[in-house]
C-alpha cells in the first residue's frame, strides 16, 4: 500500500509543479464544447438534445490527452525502468498509475461540469450533485482500460495516434451508459431512472479494473 501511495504522491507532486496535464486537458475540453456550439449554429434546440453527448465527447477527448501525457512523463529519462527495477508487483504499479490518472481525469470532469451547466443554463445544484457520481464512475471505466493501453501505446512508434484508436471502440459501453445517465440528470430525473445504465457502468468498471490489473504485467515488461 505504501508503494501505491508513493506512486500517486509522485504523480501529484509532478503535476503540481508542472501543471501541464491538468491545464491542457481542461482547455482542450472547453475548446471542444465551444467548437460544438459553432458546429450546431448556437441553435438552442439542437444543443439541448446534444448536451449530454457533448459533455462526454469533450471529456473523453481531453482524457486521452491526459493519459498519453501521463505515460510520456514516465518515459522521460526512462524513469519507468527505475520503477520496474524495484521489487514492486506490476499490479501495484498499475494501481498507482490508475488511481493518479483517475484523480486527474475526475478533477477535470469536476471543473468542466459547472462551466457546462452555466453555458447551457441548467439548474446548478440539482444537476451538479447527481452528475458527480456519473463523472466518477465514468472516469474509472475510462482510465482502467486507458492506463493499460497508454502503457502499450508508449512503446509503439505511433503512440499519439494509437491510443484513441485502441481505446475508443473499447469504451463504447462507458460512453453510452454515461450519456444515458447524464441525459436523465439533465432532464431533471433521478439517476435511478436509468438504473440499467448505472449497473452497466459499474460492471464495466469492476470487470476492467480486475482484467487490466492482471494483464498489465505483460504490457509493461519488456519481452
Amino acid at each position: 500500500m505504501n508503494k501505491v501511495w508513493a506512486i500517486i504522491k509522485k504523480d501529484i507532486i509532478t503535476e503540481l509543479r508542472t501543471k501541464e496535464l491538468f491545464s491542457s486537458m481542461l482547455v482542450f475540453a472547453l475548446l471542444v464544447i465551444v467548437i460544438f456550439n459553432f458546429a450546431f449554429g448556437f441553435s438552442a434546440e439542437l444543443l439541448d438534445l446534444a448536451a449530454p453527448a457533448m459533455l462526454w465527447i469533450s471529456f473523453t477527448f481531453a482524457g486521452v490527452l491526459g493519459l498519453s501525457r501521463s505515460f510520456a512523463l514516465e518515459k522521460e529519462g526512462d524513469a519507468i525502468i527505475g520503477m520496474l527495477l524495484t521489487p514492486t508487483d506490476r499490479s501495484l504499479i498499475y494501481a498507482g498509475k490508475m488511481i493518479s490518472n483517475t484523480i486527474f481525469v475526475f478533477l477535470v470532469g469536476l471543473l468542466m461540469v459547472p462551466m457546462f451547466i452555466l453555458f447551457f443554463n441548467y439548474n446548478f445544484l440539482s444537476t451538479l450533485v447527481p452528475l458527480i457520481p456519473v463523472i466518477f464512475l465514468g472516469s474509472i471505466g475510462f482510465v482502467s482500460v486507458g492506463t493499460l493501453f497508454s502503457a502499450m501505446a508508449l512503446n509503439t512508434k505511433l503512440r499519439e495516434v494509437m491510443l484513441p484508436i485502441l481505446l475508443f471502440p473499447i469504451i463504447i459501453p462507458v460512453i453510452v451508459s454515461a450519456v444515458k445517465l447524464s441525459e436523465q440528470v439533465l432532464d431533471g430525473n433521478s439517476l435511478l431512472a436509468a438504473s440499467f445504465s448505472l449497473k452497466l457502468l459499474v460492471s464495466f468498471d469492476i470487470i476492467f479494473l480486475t482484467a487490466c490489473a492482471v494483464i498489465f504485467e505483460y504490457v509493461i515488461d519488456e519481452s
Partner: peptide
C-alpha cells in the same frame, strides 16, 4: 530485484 542495483547511461530518474 532487491539484491541488484542498475546504473545505465539513462538516469532512470524523474526530471520533475
Amino acid at each position: 530485484r532487491s539484491t541488484i542495483g542498475v546504473i545505465s547511461h539513462d538516469p532512470y530518474l524523474y526530471d520533475n
